[in-house]
């Protein structure tokens, strides 16, 4: 900086007013560049119409006992599973110490509706859709990289790090839920 300012050692060691102008102008240019880049970057975030599709409703009576229905929410599959008493018993009796991502079954369902499990249908490893009713723990098995989930959608074996995600949802009535 400031080649034109020559001090005793010829290096321009002291900060001069010209250095200040150089640094200030440079900083202003960088700041302006960042401010101009931000709207471009931000435009790649979800658009208003994409965000508007944020919630759906579902009638739980459509699912039979022992069955699962897959619905599409925000472009992603959601599993709605009506668990049999045996599957429910397996889910609730598993000790938390046996789990990779410990969470009780009761924390993954709504009170009074514990037979219904609602989870996002994307494997928490790399997003494939696990197959219903297969795998070593009777829940789901992901064919892509071999993750096994139990009947509560919790990860039991394989590369996936987390349990199947329970989306935000609430019961509007006894048989109707709203996801999102």
């Amino acid at each position: 900086m400031a080649e034109s300012v020559v001090t005793e050692n010829g290096e321009g060691g002291d900060a001069t007013r010209r250095d200040f102008i150089h640094i200030a102008a440079g900083a202003a240019a960088v700041g302006a560049g960042a401010m101009l880049a931000w709207p471009l970057i931000n435009s790649m975030n979800p658009a208003a119409d994409t965000l508007a599709l944020a919630s759906i409703e579902f009638d739980m009576t459509k699912v039979q006992e022992g069955q699962q229905i897959v619905i599409k929410w925000q472009g992603k599959p959601v599993f709605v599973r009506y668990r049999t008493p045996r599957e429910l018993q397996e889910a609730t009796s598993t000790p938390l110490s046996a789990l990779k991502d410990p969470q009780a079954d009761a924390d993954r369902v709504k009170d009074g509706h514990s037979q219904y499990l609602v989870v996002l249908g994307n494997c928490t490893h790399l997003g494939c859709i696990p197959t219903f009713g297969s795998g070593d723990f009777g829940g789901w098995f992901c064919p892509c990289h071999g993750s096994h989930y139990d009947t509560s959608g919790r990860i039991r074996k394989g590369p996936a790090p987390k349990n199947l995600v329970v989306p935000e949802y609430a019961y509007l009535s006894d048989t109707r839920i709203k996801i999102g």
Partner: peptide
């Protein structure tokens, strides 16, 4: 989410 421009 930014990269995909949406949740999926």
């Amino acid at each position: 989410i930014w990269l995909r421009g949406g949740p999926a």
